[in-house]
Simulated assay, not measured.
Amino acid sequence: MTSETLISFRGVAKTYPGATRAAVRELSLDIPRGRFITLVGPSGCGKTTTMKMVNRLIEPTSGRIVLAGQDISTIDATSLRRRIGYVIQQVGLFPHQTIERNVAAVPRLLGWDKARIRDRVAELLDLVGVPVDEFGHRYPAQLSGGQAQRVGVARALAANPEILLMDEPFGAIDPITRVELQDELLRLQREMHKTILFVTHDIDEAMKMGDLIAVFDQTATLVQFGTPDDILASPATEFVQRFIGEGTGLHRLKLRRVRDLPLRAAPEQGVPDAPRLPATATLHQALDCLVRTSADCLIVTEQDSPQPMGVLTFADLQRALREAKTPTAEDAA
């Protein structure tokens, strides 16, 4: 375990009573501080069990989990959970409490004074796009699924935990809202630098969200841990190769941003009717925009500014796709 490691799994295994196979097999894994980690794999592979052992909702059968140098088995479970944010697919908001009181739940338990709680709730609800003036007095049943999930994230962040556990948090959300929530969470992470463990069964979501990805196979074994690009370029096992599926070049276009490419200078007279795209967009989004609009090029802008940064053409994307092509065994021979 290095000084940058926040959570360390050391030979951790879990077998449920009466089960014929382990839910998690001999897991050894170091989680770096401040990184977004996605845990991905098929149903029953142990990813949720792994995550729940971090806040002791599930106790390991063997092995140790060390948090900031301390074995978590020596930490009072209730105190540990108050230090760790937790977001689940079903949100889990208290139905008979207002949104404001839901977000304030952990700070109240920690004994924060009322003014500090009020300020923190307002800050977080504004941050996740559910302003306290408009939504604070409402109840969970009065929110859409996407709004409720935003409140769930705000509640998990209320006491400013260093660690955030997220168990398929966007799995029950419609596709459009899901993308919006993914982007919002990535924006929050850029600002807050939390250590996030995010469970998903969706490889595209894992690739989009994770700085690092832990891939579990059907035997509940960790088979690869690395960056999205590393996993796409060099799958460790046949299972990982199958799980990623075809089209690794397109997967890589989803990982790279327009800002990563050298842009052509924008003509002084401009490009009439050319679509505009922020530099934070992925190359996959740029390709989609070119195909949908039948445009020859895109004007790339700063996130919140109409000022052109440069021009991106279809040829630029073709070159990026060629560079992203994963070498095959034939290529290597």
Rank of each mutant, 00 (worst) to 15 (best):
P140L: 08
L287C: 01
T5D: 10
L80Q: 03
T61W: 00
A265T: 15
A233L: 15
T219Y: 08
D204M: 00
V54R: 11
G152S: 09
V311P: 04
V103M: 04
P267C: 11
H251G: 04
V311Y: 04
G111L: 12
T49M: 06
C297T: 01
R120H: 05
G111H: 10
L93E: 00
L212P: 00
R21E: 11
P272V: 05
D30K: 02
V130R: 06
Q182R: 14
L283Y: 12
T313F: 15
Q97S: 13
A236K: 01
V151T: 04
I65G: 10
F135W: 05
F314M: 14
D167C: 12
G63A: 14
L157H: 10
M51N: 03
D183Y: 02
R82M: 10
L287Q: 10
T78R: 05
F239V: 03
G85Q: 02
V128Q: 08
Q142M: 14
Q149F: 05
F135G: 08
E191V: 07
R35Y: 02
V153L: 14
T38N: 07
R64C: 01
M166G: 04
P228H: 03
R82P: 02
E205F: 05
G249M: 15
R276T: 14
E168I: 07
T5V: 11
I84Q: 00
V153A: 11
S305G: 02
N102C: 07
N160I: 01
G152D: 07
A13W: 13
K325Q: 15
V153E: 06
A156M: 04
T15E: 06
F135E: 05
G11A: 12
